[in-house]
Design a protein around this nucleic acid. Sequence first.
DNA 1: TTAGGGCTAGTG
DNA 2: CACTAGCCCTAA
Length: 377
Amino acid sequence: MVARATQQASTTMPPLAAADAFRVLEFVAGNRRVPHSLLAGLLAGLPPVSPHTSPRLRKAIALRALDAALSGSDADGSGEVLRKARDVLADPGVAACFPDHLAVVRDDVAALRRLVDAEWESLPPSEFELEADRIAGAGALDTWANADQDTRKKLRRLVGESTAREILGKLGQDPSKAPQVDEAANAASTSGANEGDRAQQDDEAHLGRGKGEASLAQEDCARHQQEPVERTTDARIPEKPVTSAATKGKEQATSSHVTGQAAPDHNKSHPVTGPKPSLMERKPSAIVYQWDSGDSDSERPSHQRRLPNYERRMRPPPAVPYKTRKKWTEIQERTLIEGVDKYGKGNWKDIKIAYPDVFQDRSTVDMKDKFRNMGRH
DNA sequence: TTAGGGCTAGTG
DNA sequence: CACTAGCCCTAA
């Protein structure tokens, strides 16, 4: 399966850029649950990666070597395990990864194992995880708050519709709140300065996170990386195949349901196609393979740990997202008219650039649509 | 980037 | 139910 996966990757996907290969490897190598054989398969399928840029990767590789050395039994008292571990630690590159204490405990296998466990636990988060945290995790509100409309669109693609809604909701654009509340908030904060505060409070309240920033994210990620490996049966990335003429027609027919809720599907006889593919949103049809977790495995020394059983289990489809609508303020309407007077109808880009504050959360298409609506009466 | 077609949440 | 405003999608 590993072989198949890597083969798949190398044949059906464009070759990974070195930087991306690095991220993949950095992420996978640092997950202790991923067996070394699997990592080796991955390495074979990726462009060459230099570990030198990432402490996490360096350390993960060193820890894997130590794990391998410590995996044998030392019950026979031959000292074989200890000798292997010493060999590994003799490598200055490995020793450099553990400046603190690990290199000191060279003749106590049990202590060494405990320390290796601790080192795994404290492995810094991968770039993937940090980035995910920035766009959909603890840092999401900041990132989204500072993103312009186009960037938000991209973010939305990445995190998926329901997560995007959740984040926007926390940013104070919650569609479930009464519109006048939204209006009031709008009027009160032309600058949006207090949005951040409120967002942060919301974030902490909703996510149960009271601690601060970077360290928090790190903790979070460190924890996640030791969590179960999930994998859908449909793990191949290109969810949306190259659009052929035939599928285009279908798509057009259904596309507008995409953002709508539980598409009523009236008068359309074909099956409802899912929302735009997102890298982070779960497909309703996805099947999850998951390590079963509920045991006290972490209490055992690493060499006695078993890889948990691989268990197939269905996940329910994600909650159906709702749409956010933002009413145009009077200022925006007036400015739009002024802009059209000044720059001419159709030069939406110019108008947007001319009044960046007013149209910060409006795309040029929004402006075009609004002007069309305004002209209808 | 823009124009235009079309869908739908929200409102009365 | 009808209508409108806001938004999305695609072609050009």
